[in-house]
Amino acid sequence: MRGRIGEARRRARERYGAGLWHLFALLACFLVAAYALTRVIAAGILLGFLLWFLGAVILHDFVVLPLYSAGDRALQRLPPVADRRRGPSVNYLRVPAGLSGLLLLIWFPLVLRASEHNYREATALSTAPFLGRWLLVTLVLFAGSALVYAVRRAAGGRRTGKAHR
């Protein structure tokens, strides 16, 4: 009897492709998600919600990620860093550019003044300073990176000019 149950479980497992707890855990997840969706329907926002939910995946996987990957490849092809033996490491550009891009990705509504109207209504202030602040931070990041490069190059030069990190 026990052997027969064990056999049935083994066969179910084989056909499903994982342990049955895997199935139950996923079904529980879909149950919660389906219930949440009924709440979204009850709130009357289904269409916009689905559009933004799926749009979020598409935006990240097919727009944001390919864009920054392409940007990174472009950085690596820049003449000063393309010659990896003699030129500086691409990271001296990649890191400040990446951090600056990250800040823009998060704060673009303030930096590009997209939410100026709502912002002024709420705070009685303008979003105007944010572009300057972002540029300032970007400048500091690139300047800091250049400084680190200069210091390392000087230190590397003193150490018989051998390969750096």
């Binding site: 709130a43 919600f49 933004w52």
Partner: peptide, 22 residues
């Protein structure tokens, strides 16, 4: 305050959170 989404923030963020957490 960049309210470009076509829904009220509160229900969307709350129910979206439950889907994400599940």
């Amino acid at each position: 305050l960049f309210y470009v989404f076509p829904f009220s923030f509160y229900p969307a963020h709350l129910y979206g959170a439950w889907i994400f957490l599940a």
